[in-house]
């Protein structure tokens, strides 16, 4: 609440948590000790039971609630800007989105909300089939239907699954590692090939060490040549890619702008009138889409020639340089810049 809000004065005791009592070792403490309890442990014969909660150790801590703030509402949100969600369509249009896409977005939004006279808006969540039958329990039911209670089988099942999963994920990792390795070895092979061929040549005149030296020098030079060649090739490719990307770039630029404003809007929680980020419904929501774009953002930056992330002023500078370079590279753009009429 601002200045106009009711002031809440509150006196806090010298020791509101009564740590004095906590530190003392009175009758209760002695009794528990005499029965085999040791400080810091929890009561009960099965202290390692996974079903025990922290509350068995330290009790339940609650926040005193003396307002009507809804669940998850943090109160002072005056400093965050709101309502940007409603501007989405306008921004979208300004940023060159087609009317159709804007309309479809609006439609999905309208579908999500049951908007009424009383101004309550809702987002559709999951459908509750039953108050308690989770997948696990369902499995139980089935298992029980067959042979009483093989909880263990079920558990081991899930464990297996877990293992499978972890295995697969590990496998994936291993795969990617393997792939990397393969690449490495490939390139090594290439190198070796070249050196192998060299070796073959070497084989004839391997007797003289001097010639070997010379040859190895030659090989080095050759390898260097090959490398340079490869580099050139890569450069060419890159240029090609740049040219290709250029068209994209223009579109991306417009999108980027939209994205930036959207990100700003979405980072302000109260302004996510569009939708909360985690939405189970399959309909294409604006935000997830934006998320994807936000992921593509650094890529496009990379594409503009700066391979390492650079911060601040430098980043801006390098971006400009990259843009300039790109413009120079593109004949059409160059023509435009130099105001040469296309033939």
């Amino acid at each position: 609440m601002g200045l106009a809000g009711p002031s809440k004065k509150r006196k806090i005791s010298h020791d509101p948590n009564n740590t004095k009592w906590t530190r003392s070792t009175g009758f209760g403490h002695k009794m528990l000790l005499s029965q085999g309890w040791s400080p810091g442990t929890i009561l009960g014969p099965d202290p390692n039971n996974p079903h025990h909660t922290a509350a068995s150790q330290v009790g339940i801590k609650v926040m005193l609630k003396d307002d009507n703030l809804g669940l998850g509402c943090r109160g002072n949100q005056e400093d965050t800007c709101t309502g940007l969600g409603d501007l989405q369509s306008l921004l979208g249009r300004l940023n060159g989105k087609t009317d159709d896409s804007v309309r479809s977005e609006e439609d999905t939004r309208r579908k999500m909300w049951i908007e009424g006279r009383y101004g309550m808006r809702f987002v559709k969540g999951e459908v509750l089939e039953s108050t308690w039958v989770t997948k696990e329990l369902r499995k139980d039911v089935e298992v029980d239907g067959k042979d009483g209670s093989d909880e263990e089988a079920k558990e081991s099942d899930s464990e297996d699954e877990e293992e499978d999963e972890s295995e697969s994920s590990e496998g994936r990792k291993a795969k990617s590692k393997k792939e990397k390795k393969r690449k490495d070895t490939d390139s090594k092979k290439k190198k070796r090939k070249s050196s192998d061929s060299e070796d073959d040549e070497d084989a004839d005149s391997s007797s003289s060490s001097s010639s070997k030296d010379r040859k190895s020098d030659k090989a080095k030079r050759k390898a260097g040549k090959a490398l340079r060649k490869a580099e050139k090739q890569a450069k060419k490719e890159r240029k090609e890619a740049k040219r290709l990307r250029k068209d994209e770039k223009r579109r991306a630029k417009a999108e980027k702008k939209a994205l930036k404003s959207a990100i700003a809007a979405s980072s302000a929680p109260s302004s996510t009138a569009s939708t909360p980020p985690a939405m189970p419904s399959a309909e294409p929501e604006p935000l997830p889409k934006l998320d994807k774009k936000s992921k593509s953002l650094p890529n496009s930056l990379h594409g503009s020639g700066t391979s390492t992330p650079i911060n601040g002023r430098q980043a801006l500078r390098s971006k400009w340089i990259a843009q300039k370079r790109m413009a120079v590279m593109d004949a059409k753009a160059l023509n435009e810049i130099l105001m040469i009429k296309a033939a």
Binding site: C73, M120, F122, V123, G125, V127, P269
Partner: peptide
């Protein structure tokens, strides 16, 4: 311990959330 589970007879319930936290519940 052995477990026997019997589902009840209930109908599906669609759940709706608010898009943002409420100031006054």
């Amino acid at each position: 311990a052995p477990l026997l589970a019997v589902p009840g007879r209930t109908h599906p319930v669609e759940i709706f959330y608010t898009p943002e936290p409420e100031r006054d519940y």
